[in-house]
Design a protein around this nucleic acid. Structure first.
Length: 293
RNA sequence: GCCGAGGUAGCUCAGUCGGUAGAGCAACGGUCUGAAAAACCGUGUGUCGGCAGUUCGAUUCUGCCCCUCGGCA
């Protein structure tokens, strides 16, 4: 266990400057970036997920390159495909191997806290998502899911009483494995030799930056980008287009809200998102905070 | 200048037949194991425009003043 691969991790809320910091570190330490971002994985969703750099042809695939530095795990699936923390752990693991083999340092940078945690400590052995079962369970009201789960996994049922999504997952795990959530949990050890830096920015400054950036994103063609993806044939409610901003733009395009309201809601949801990210990273004990203002 | 409406939380407003006030949004705190840009849980932060009067007690009633928004000039 003492030959763990060395990686660096940069986290932080949206608009905190993670990519910029990651690029500087890559230059200094001969590194390459692995994006830990549940939205940048989607092809065609560029402006709205704050991708930087350009896609370059690289043998059989495309790789995003920012100022000469490769950034992996962006643009890997279509907007109607699903991606999960488990997918990320697998894909990032492979990229870490590749980058390390080249003699470079993998720099994992992104704002999806669960992905980072799952990568660093692993996910427990558990049944994967079962779409058919989920569809069946989703027909039932949350109240019924709760009652059903109460019989087989009361702890998870109580904990997620008002949370349909989590009730459903706990029930899914229980039905497929016969075990409770907790019975799957094991003690965790680090899977990498890592340093985890998290960027902290004062909310007042961060929120102002978010408001400005949302406006810029609209000006920079995010509406057209959404229309383009819809013209490709992807549905309005597909996974990729359900992200912040895209879902607001779709409401606007459907005539349900004004452009002004769309921008307000877009900014608001982004601020709320940044707050949740802050709460998550604050709670991580392996993190060293870099205070920026 | 006159007439009308109004001034209560960061914003929009409700309310108190007189006993120091509450909704939505914002903000703040938290949860988190294959949907995580998701899905949830919790918290009211206030010179009730100012001054005086009546009253045991005024944000509420009365008077004056200040401010805002309409309309008429």
């Amino acid at each position: 266990m003492n030959n763990l691969k060395t990686i660096l991790v940069i986290s932080g809320p949206t608009a905190s400057g993670k990519t910029k910091l990651a690029l500087n570190i890559c230059r200094e330490k001969n590194g390459e970036i692995i994006s830990a971002d549940s939205r940048q994985v989607y092809k065609y969703l560029d402006t709205g997920t704050n991708k930087e750099g350009v896609l370059r042809h690289n043998g059989q695939s495309f790789v995003r390159v920012i100022d000469g530095i490769p950034q992996y795990l962006t643009d890997i699936i279509n907007p109607d495909q699903k991606y999960s923390a488990a997918d990320f752990v697998r894909d990032a693991g492979l990229k870490i191997e590749e980058i390390t083999k080249k003699g470079k340092i993998p720099v994992v940078a992104g704002g999806t806290g669960l992905y980072i945690k799952a990568l660093l400590y692993g996910l427990d052995e558990m049944p994967q998502a079962d779409e058919k079962l989920r569809l069946k369970l989703a027909e039932k009201p949350a109240e019924e899911l709760y009652k059903q789960l109460l019989k087989s996994d009361p702890e998870a049922a109580e904990k997620n009483k008002n949370n349909p999504q989590r009730l459903l997952r706990a029930l899914e795990v229980n039905i497929l494995s016969g075990k409770t959530m907790k019975e799957h949990f094991k003690d965790k050890t680090q899977r990498y030799a890592f340093k985890h830096y998290s960027i902290a920015v004062d909310n007042e400054i961060l929120y102002k930056r978010i408001n400005e950036r949302c406006e810029e994103m609209i000006e920079n063609g995010m509406i057209e980008e959404t229309e383009k993806v819809l013209h490709f044939g992807f549905k309005q409610d597909c996974a990729g287009l359900s992200g912040i901003g895209y879902r607001h733009i779709i409401k606007y395009l459907n005539g349900e809200i004004s452009k002004e309201t769309m921008l307000e809601e877009f900014s608001k949801d982004t601020r709320h998102y940044a707050k949740r990210q802050n709460t998550w990273f604050k709670a991580q004990s392996d993190t060293e905070f870099l205070k920026f203002s």
